[in-house]
Simulated scan of single mutants.
Amino acid sequence: MTAAVPPPDWAAMLGRTSFIELDARERATALLDDGTARELCGPFDRIESPWLEPQGVVPASDDGVAVVKGRLGGRPSVVIAIEQAFQGGGIGEVSGAKTAAALSLAARDNRDGIPTSAVLLLETGGVRLQEANLGLATIAEVCSAILELRALQPVVGVIAGALGCFGGMSIAAGLCTRLIMTEEGRLGLDGPEVIESEAGVAEFDASDHPLIWSIDGGRQRTRTALADVLVPDDVAALRSAVIDAVGRGIPGEHRSRRLGEWQARVRAVDPADPPDPPGLAAVWAKAVPPRGDR
């Protein structure tokens, strides 16, 4: 007998404040404690990409990244939010430099006795095509800065919106201390359109939304341990999850260093007969040995 699905809590759904509907600056401010948010290197500083206008693209005066410092649950923190509405959240030289510099400054604060954590709000397709190699280089700097800071304080990633997190920034997401997703969020190294264009529609149909979310969506990424927490699209729920993630501190071993676990998961899958998404979660759950044997 199939278990009955509980009816939706319409009062809770109607009373929530959607995190996804906010822009990057609003998202960052909403996570921080009231009255503590202070933006660094904001739009009035007009630090723009010099590479977009010559290619016919109107630049953004903050290059699509908001860096907001404040307190999170009473603790010093910096929130770095990518604006999904500008160039699909693409990372270029300036936006990447802002991100890497903010993380490095947080690490410096820690060494100076100010325990500062970081939150990355990841809504991005990866490198901005107009800046190609410059974008790749700056994502490498971002990854390096995450590794520097996560040894001192948690670096929490959040993937909330349907744009998702792909490309080089998905590697940055994988380096985060903890990763929080909503059911609407997506995470993958290559986007569905990229896979379809390279390998054909038989490999991945980019128009099949249920297929895409069954593989890249937040629920599946949490089931398969590529993300840690699944939360609803609600400001209060996300803020609570982020505060909890920071409060857990630095783990004994970060996900990206648990190589034995991931090797066991890869070996458990037969590429000639791959499981469907629900089956993958079950296969991977069985593949990982008990913690003492990892």
Rank of each mutant, 00 (worst) to 15 (best):
L179T: 10
Q130E: 14
T124P: 02
T222D: 00
T99E: 02
G157M: 05
I91W: 08
A101K: 12
G217N: 05
R128D: 02
A206P: 03
A151R: 15
E131L: 07
R108I: 12
G161E: 05
G167F: 07
S170V: 10
I146V: 15
E148S: 15
A145L: 08
G113M: 06
L179D: 00
E196I: 04
T99I: 14
I215V: 15
L121D: 12
L120P: 00
C143R: 15
I139C: 09
F204M: 13
G96D: 09
S117K: 04
A107Q: 09
A118S: 10
A172W: 07
I114C: 01
A172H: 08
R223Q: 09
C165T: 13
C165G: 10
V142N: 04
A100Q: 09
W213Q: 05
H209I: 14
V194T: 13
E198K: 14
E198H: 11
G185S: 10
R221L: 01
I180W: 01
L152T: 11
V156Q: 07
E93V: 15
G126K: 02
L136I: 12
R239L: 03
A140T: 12
G200V: 09
F166T: 02
A102N: 06
V156D: 07
L175G: 03
M169N: 10
H209F: 13
Q130P: 00
A237W: 12
G174A: 02
A137D: 11
E148P: 04
R150D: 07
E148H: 13
G191L: 05
V94R: 14
L189E: 02
S117A: 15
D109R: 07
L103C: 06
G191N: 08
R223I: 00
I114T: 13
D228A: 01
